[in-house]
Design a binder for these strands. Structure first.
Lengths: 135, 135
DNA sequence: ATAATTGCAAATGCTTTGCTTGTGA
DNA sequence: TCACAAGCAAAGCATTTGCAATTAT
């Protein structure tokens, strides 16, 4: 059983056949698929799963903290399994490839900035857009 | 004449009556209005300007580098006049208020991170979401 | 003069939802 | 059993676009 299914159980999220297939597809994804792409992947396992169910499921998973939603440039929401350790993203503007990275120093500074402005940091979004340096 | 109109002229963007009104409304805005809100403000000056024109104009201005588009949480794009000096945003999750800030140190680190990953930083998005600390 | 711009309404693309039937615990 | 979930098609929302009429240079 994959981690997403485990989290569903521990959080009391009912596991249907469709949700299991979607959970497995998400677990197997190392990229950050949008709903349409995810729908294609689950349909390879079960052709009858509708896109409405995929939409409802990723929303449910997101609200349960099981997956994370990202609104990168491009108009469509993209999802990834919630990681153990928070990370941010660098998006290759040419290929669309997404590279994950962790930078504690930036995280610290973000907290400091918020604090200085009189706020408690609740959430943040950091996206870098870049082009590959050829060497 | 406001800065947006000046930039239109210097960039060869044709200035119609409607665009002048929209330019003035944007110039006068200290918040980050969405298209609907901008349309309302523009309509106080000229009731006949359609929302399609507002959409077309902010898109044109954005593509010309005259205004900046932001996709904060909430689904609708929001706009501000392009600032002289780059800044990022902290969004009050309770009131929706937006506070602008500059942090050179974070900017530097972003460049370093991108470089370390083999990328040249072209663009970035940093949004902090926080709640006011009551004192 | 004439290429660009506008207003309107229709179309788009992503996402949500009402309703009926099916199903997990 | 029976509250909840799925499938389908229709609706919703922000945004874009085709077209005929209008306008800036």
């Amino acid at each position: 059983m994959n981690k997403i299914e485990e989290k569903c159980i521990s959080k009391g999220v009912r596991l249907t056949d469709q949700r299991k297939v979607i959970a497995e597809a998400m677990s197997a994804s190392t990229d950050h698929p949008d709903v349409d792409e995810l729908h294609k992947r689950v349909n390879k396992v079960d052709k009858k799963i509708s896109i409405a169910t995929v939409y409802r499921t990723v929303k449910l998973f997101e609200e349960s903290g099981i997956v994370e939603k990202h609104d990168f440039k491009g108009g469509k929401a993209r999802y990834e399994e919630s990681p153990d350790e928070h990370h941010d993203h660098l998006i290759d503007i040419n290929s669309g490839e997404i590279i994950e990275f962790v930078d504690k120093e930036i995280e610290n500074l973000q907290n400091k900035v918020a604090e200085k402005l009189g706020y408690k940091l609740v959430d943040h979004k950091l996206e870098l857009y870049g082009s590959k340096i050829k060497k």
